[in-house]
């Protein structure tokens, strides 16, 4: 019953929306797929939407932290969006604070966060961007 979580690309952002209760193998598969997708697409951001997720245990927590670290190495920012209050409370009690993973209330706010980042980074003046804007 292995199922792949679809990874959508919207311009320079990869979007993953977890909708089902994933087993551990699906979770590892998603981690691999996402790392590959970041490299293939050259995306500058990854948004993981967990609005529909009712449970985040330490295994999924570790996957999220790993994806964040991986994408940082591949020059992409990860934003985790839509965590439910009950899930947040449980994670804190479990002892997971997901340090290093950026979060946003909604998908919209998460996308805007990545945009703002890019503008900031762009304003530092990397040559190719400057040419592209001109």
């Amino acid at each position: 019953m292995t199922e792949r979580v679809p990874i959508l690309r919207i311009r320079q952002v990869l979007l993953v929306s977890i909708q089902t209760d994933l087993d551990d193998q699906d979770v590892l598969l998603l981690q691999d797929d996402l790392a590959q997708a970041v490299v293939d697409s050259g995306a500058h951001g990854v948004v993981i939407d967990i609005t529909a997720v009712e449970i985040v245990d330490s295994f999924v927590g570790r996957m999220l932290a790993t994806i964040a670290s991986l994408s940082r190495l591949l020059d992409a920012q990860t934003v985790l969006v839509g965590m439910r209050p009950a899930v947040a409370i449980t994670l804190v009690e479990l002892g997971l604070s997901l340090g290093g993973v950026r979060t946003a209330l909604t998908l919209d706010k998460g996308l805007r966060m990545l945009e703002d980042d890019r503008v900031e980074r762009g304003s530092e003046g990397t040559a190719p961007d400057a040419v592209a804007h001109a």
Binding site: L80, V81, R84, P85, A88, V92, S97, L98, T103, L105
Partner: peptide, 12 residues
């Protein structure tokens, strides 16, 4: 303290 950390996990 836990409330503050939980809020951060949610993006606030």
């Amino acid at each position: 303290l836990k409330t503050v950390v939980a809020a951060r996990l949610m993006g606030a």
